[in-house]
Design a protein around this nucleic acid. Structure first.
Length: 503
RNA sequence: GGCGCUAUGGUGCAACGGUUAGCACGCGGCCCUUUCAAGGCCGAAAUACGGGUUCGAUUCCCGUUAGCGCUACCA
């Protein structure tokens, strides 16, 4: 934003998922990169749904994709556009190619290639080297010799014989492909019923739309690298200039094969459901295949946008490392300003049905009637122990159920120590006088009391723990309780002391 | 099978001809903690292999190997 030289207002990028599945992490990262690039350059982010395959398309999945993007913080400026609603545009473009001779009508049966040579050679990979069936890259129909006259034709692109097609890739550099390796790909499917033609194929759709939407940078998965020359050819046939391409490496599973359900969750919305913070997920995703250059790990949205550049994108496929994702989450759980964390925790507690209205920020006094920042402090204290959001529910459930484990031995030891009652009294005062209520403050106060009395802080902590609930509690809960409600702690301490005096 | 892309510890990234090859996750140890985390310190761990180019290669070129991708009237 500050460097006007880097600001190119005309930048227009898009994320173009096809609704044949949920928003997977690979797609999410592609979307994120596009978004970061757009925001970095003050450009426009477009969302386009590529639903030209009626067979596989599942309209109900679109909302999930949009929700996933929203959770990630990827907001789009234009769209969503649906390719299924723009068929006339594609048909016109295909006919234009037909007219200028860069495409032809193909009468071959639809399954000629799919069920033919290629499929077989894959199925039985025991072919002797060099003798495997070769794939046909030129269709005989292109010379006006329909193989099946009478059938409804599809429109195929007439790929040049000989020569090469080159293009610049912001990540992979200059690329050059031999035209003879490119098949006469289909532009428009043949029509069904009384339709003249069917729906557009991928290659035609992307190119026509990217031209129409004035997309300047195509940032997408590296699995499209080999498709790019076809598209460059199409751009030319349509009389347009190709945009800048930027292919980003793929995301693999732990076994280095393409990430799939087999590797666990690949649906972004599942990570949301598991309780990851979007900030953490985004930071992790951004660093998968991209680096700001140095040793930096923590990049909040602002830094991400400021530092993102295509030059920093790696060319190597990356393995999705869940442990690191979790680490990012614990870090954000601790580093996020408490105001930003609170709403997330609130949602989580609502989800688990443990939420109580009086906990709301800024609401009336807490359970003890005195403590206004009660909820905030509790969350703040608890967060170093939390890995995922739902852990907050676990803690809340444990605390409010009063179902603590009881350790008779600890209880016994406490009541037998003659120094304890006085110490507890001092501790209660110290805690009651605290100005700041965080873990360290409580810790220091406790230690100060212990040190002054010449006892181990641990002993005092344990004693207080026992006193507070009149029984041994699950250890980690102690700190929570101390901060949870200072008034209550003090009250309980006094009660406990009174009880011990009688005994 | 053909074509393409890639190759730094187990994982993600640095080093863009000259470094004791750096950082982070994970892992091991220690400290802290009569607890669980968090935190602090220390440690093990890499330039796939073979040729070149160069005074000098992780870095540039070629080959091998491996992985991945494309090779559909899927996207």
């Amino acid at each position: 934003m500050t460097d006007s030289n880097d600001k190119t207002p005309w930048v227009r990028v898009r994320f173009a998922p096809s609704p044949t599945g949920y928003l997977h992490v690979g797609g999410a990262r592609t979307a994120l990169f596009n978004w970061l690039f757009a925001r970095r350059h003050g450009g426009v982010m477009i969302l386009r749904i590529e639903d030209t395959d009626a067979e596989r398309n599942k309209p109900e999945l679109v909302q999930g994709i949009i929700d996933g993007l929203k959770w990630l913080g990827v907001d789009c400026d234009e769209g969503p556009f649906y390719q299924s609603q723009r068929t006339e545009l594609y048909r016109a473009a295909a006919k234009k190619c037909l007219a200028n001779g860069s495409a032809f009508l193909c009468y071959c049966p639809a399954d000629k290639y799919a069920g033919g040579d290629y499929a077989e050679s894959v199925a039985q990979d025991e072919e002797p080297k060099g003798t495997g069936p070769r794939r046909v890259t030129r269709c005989s129909c292109r010379d006006g010799k329909p193989s099946m006259p009478g059938a409804k034709p599809a429109i195929r692109f007439k790929v040049p014989v000989g020569g090469t097609t080159k293009f610049a890739d912001a990540v992979f550099g200059e690329r050059e492909f031999s035209n003879d390796e490119i098949e006469d790909f289909v532009l428009l499917r043949s029509g069904k019923g009384d339709e003249e033609f069917g729906q557009s194929m991928y290659q035609l759709g992307v190119v026509v739309d990217d031209i129409d939407m004035r997309v300047t940078h195509v940032i997408r998965g590296a699995d499209h690298l080999s498709n790019t020359p076809k598209q460059v050819l199409l751009y030319r046939a349509l009389g347009a200039t190709p945009p800048v391409f930027a292919h980003v490496p793929l995301i693999l599973g732990a076994d280095k094969t393409r990430l799939s359900k087999r590797h666990g969750a690949t649906d972004v919305n599942m990570y949301r459901a598991e309780g990851f913070l979007p900030e953490a997920f985004r930071n992790f995703l951004a660093l998968l295949g991209w680096s700001p250059g140095g040793d930096e790990e923590f990049l909040r949205t602002k830094d991400l946008i400021q530092k993102f550049s295509l030059e920093g994108v790696s060319r190597t496929n990356a393995v999705f490392d869940r442990p690191k994702l979790e680490w990012f989450n614990t870090q954000y759980l601790q580093q996020l300003p408490i105001e930003e964390l609170l709403p997330e925790v609130e949602n989580e507690l609502k989800r688990s049905g443990l939420w109580k209205p009086e906990w709301a920020r800024g609401a009336a006094p807490g359970p003890d009637g005195h403590d206004h920042a009660w909820f905030s402090r509790t969350v703040d204290l608890l967060r170093p122990r939390i890995r995922l959001l739902p852990d907050f529910s676990t803690w809340a459930r444990a605390f409010f159920s009063d179902d603590f484990s009881c350790d008779p031995a600890a209880k016994e030891k406490f009541w037998k120590d003659p120094k304890v009652p006085e110490l507890l009294s001092k501790l209660a005062d110290a805690l009651g006088n605290l100005k700041e209520w965080n873990h360290d403050a409580c810790d220091h106060a406790t230690r100060a009391v212990a040190e002054a009395a010449g006892v181990k802080a641990a002993l005092l902590i344990n004693a207080a723990r026992v006193a507070i609930v009149g029984q041994a509690v699950a250890p980690p809960l102690f700190d929570t309780m101390v901060v949870l409600g200072q008034q209550r702690v003090v009250r309980r301490l006094h009660d406990a002391l009174a009880a011990s005096a009688k005994a």
